[in-house]
Design a protein around this nucleic acid. Sequence first.
DNA 1: AATCAATGTACCC
DNA 2: TGGGTACCCTTGAT
Length: 534
Amino acid sequence: MAPVTRRTSFPKVVIERDSDSEQSSSDDDEQEQEEEILEDEENGVIENAKIEKLEVGFDANRKGKTPITLTLRKVCKVCKKPGHEAGHTTLNCPHRVTTEHGVVPAPRRKTSKPLEYVFERQLRHAIPAIKPKYVIPDQVNCAVIRYHSRRVTTLEFHPTKNNILLSGDKKGQLGVWDFEKVYEKVVYSNIHSCIVNNMRFNPTNDCMVYSASSDGTVSCTDLETGISSSPMNLNPDGWQGPNTWKMLYGMDINYERGVVLVADSFGFLHLVDMRSNHRNGDAVLIHKKGSKVTGIHCNPIQPDILLTCGNDHYARIWDMRRLEAGSSLCSLEHKRVVNSAYFSPISGNKILTTSQDNRLRIWDSIFGNMESPSREIVHSHDFNRHLTPFKAEWDPKDPSESLAVVGRYISENFNGTALHPIDFIDTSTGQLVAEVLDPNITTISPVNKLHPRDDILATGSSRSLFIWKPKEKCEPIEEKDERKIVVCDKAEKKRGKRKGDNSDESDDDGFISKLKKPKLKQTEWKLSRCSKKG
DNA sequence: AATCAATGTACCC
DNA sequence: TGGGTACCCTTGAT
């Protein structure tokens, strides 16, 4: 249904006259582009070009008027050119992530601010002059398929237990998975009633985890028992309609003050005291009234310095010691909604934001010129209401504070199969360092988290979770590959049992599924398979 | 194979 | 500022 109606409603109408005098230079450009694309199409390079020409029914000979050609074209939301669209299989978008493409370079300013000078002097020794070689976790090591009952919305690694991954979903479930033991997993269903947007471990008790949800509550859950309390509930009177229902999105912990900071869908910031587990102080308006605050991050060096971002197209820096409406230290303007904003993980001196205008923005120094970003990197991570918003995140282990990971919306056509890779981007240059993909991951992967200590990537893609490790740390490829994949769906489980696949390795919740044979030849894949540990 | 539902953002008035 | 609605175009279920 949708594709048919869309086709008639979507194309932009451009009227081109075949008269010499009326052609502007921009028309020229457009015509040139179009000719190029048509040529490509003849060569069979472009699969997705959708250009239609309609001769409008004017009589060309009558009164000597030139015929009008209407060109209906779909244009890419990223680069505004026809022939491909963000979100669709394409090979020819110049702004799909390619080396150095779509990077707006940093304007080299001489700011001469004393503060920046001092900071740079203090920090320079800590930042290595030669960039370390990036270690990319590019092989799926294990997975739980259909783990959650709805799509995964947030991930968090355990602060001390290296093998534990926490996951939240759209339904409000909270998953705890030991990905080394693969089969050891728990899903708590009674903590939230809808989307879990953010989770943070209690820094003084790593058994306890705080979670912020669109149900308007902050929950504090004991991971061993699953028992949870709600230190905050912004909808104590239940559903009174969409105008009053408050949702909680951004959340972080200021460990020095012992408070949880959480922000709602009406532009307000709230505090929860971790010792008493009760609300602390009044809510403060930190973004446009009535707009969603999508993220909060406390500076890793100075936790009183906050970074927030929201649907009002701004990211803002605040000082907790002077927190009141309108008192932000700095406002970073974006063209669209800002999905996330993070300080760099080590020095806390850089900022990385993800905006729905398909751009990553980097500010190289919070003490420098903040009027415009140091770089804008064009990258396909478009908004779609059915997907969890994409958030580019720093690699917490990269001493140069350059590497970031972000899922890609636009897909690559791998021999007829559309796959959406996960991108590793060097934010200092805009270079695509690596794209990782796997034949078993056919869905878009908007949620990604790099491990704070190990070379591990966790991915949430639809209802499934994947753990990636570097190729060299995986076992060599075997012909009869049986990967560590646990399928959690009940229907799948029954099917597996009927086939007699239920080996003694299986537990009550899942079984080992044989690796699906890729539809493509092995050579087509940049990444090969990783076998099960014996 | 076809259809449906769920549903966030932008923009108009 | 609030209501109305067009549009964004995925995924899993049936």
